[in-house]
Design a protein around this nucleic acid. Structure first.
Length: 209
DNA sequence: ATGACGATTTACT
DNA sequence: GTAAATCGTCATA
């Protein structure tokens, strides 16, 4: 039985993206909804985006635009972007201020407010088929749907926010990790082949093995 | 002003 | 396996 530990403070986010991606696995992502209900679960899949050198990163080449402004903020800042005309993805900024590196949270195992998260996922009007138990937050855009995260949370400070934050589990979970290439970045040439994705070995709530 | 493109998901063949 | 959905963002003009 795992309980909720203490919130991650600034220092826990101040590292390189590869270390943070690894360290976030097993931690809890918690979201406080507008009505005060808290939902969330254990992070089981992450990806590191290495900044100006990384052809798969939005900040590649030192690009500075309104959309990615948050990537240049201090560690612990949320970077939420909108993509494919319909989806949001949630990242945790790390590194130093002005160093645009971040970790994409790709999946959580729902642990708190499971029914509420399922409802948020079902809310999509055109949905035809039901959602599998393991499909509640098993993907970056599924996760933001389940946690009601959109661009309004872009720039939120996870170290102090009352809307979204990261906690340790107690006792700390030490899942067996598998490292693979990142998903959906085939356009990035050699950078697409770098093993910058971490996933809990065989976890049913991961977006894929 | 215009056109191309997604750090995805879903449904369908 | 393939393709549609759907629009903010970005580079180019």
């Amino acid at each position: 039985m795992t309980g909720v530990g203490r919130r991650w403070s600034r220092g826990r986010f101040q590292s390189d993206p590869e270390s943070l991606a690894r360290n976030l696995i097993g931690a809890l992502l918690i979201r406080r909804l507008a009505d005060g209900m808290e939902v969330g679960g254990m992070i089981v899949e992450t990806e590191a985006y290495l900044g100006v050198e990384d052809a798969a990163a939005h900040s590649f080449g030192g690009r500075r635009t309104d959309r990615i402004r948050s990537m240049y903020a201090e560690a612990g800042t949320a970077y939420v972007y909108f993509t494919y005309g319909m989806h949001h993805c949630f990242n945790v900024v790390c590194g130093e201020v002005d160093e645009p590196v971040a970790v994409l949270i790709r999946a959580i195992e729902p642990l708190f407010g499971r029914d509420r998260m399922m409802s948020l996922r079902m809310a999509e009007p055109k949905r035809k088929h039901p959602i599998r138990e393991t499909g509640i937050a098993s993907g970056p855009a599924r996760l933001t749907q389940a946690l009601s995260i959109d661009r309004r949370l872009d720039g939120e400070d996870l170290a102090t926010s009352s809307e979204v934050w990261v906690c340790n589990t107690s006792p700390q979970v030490r899942p067996k990790l598998r490292q693979t290439t990142r998903i959906g970045v085939d356009y990035a040439g050699a950078w697409a082949k770098r093993p910058l994705r971490w996933v809990v070995e065989g976890h049913p709530h991961a977006s894929r093995p």
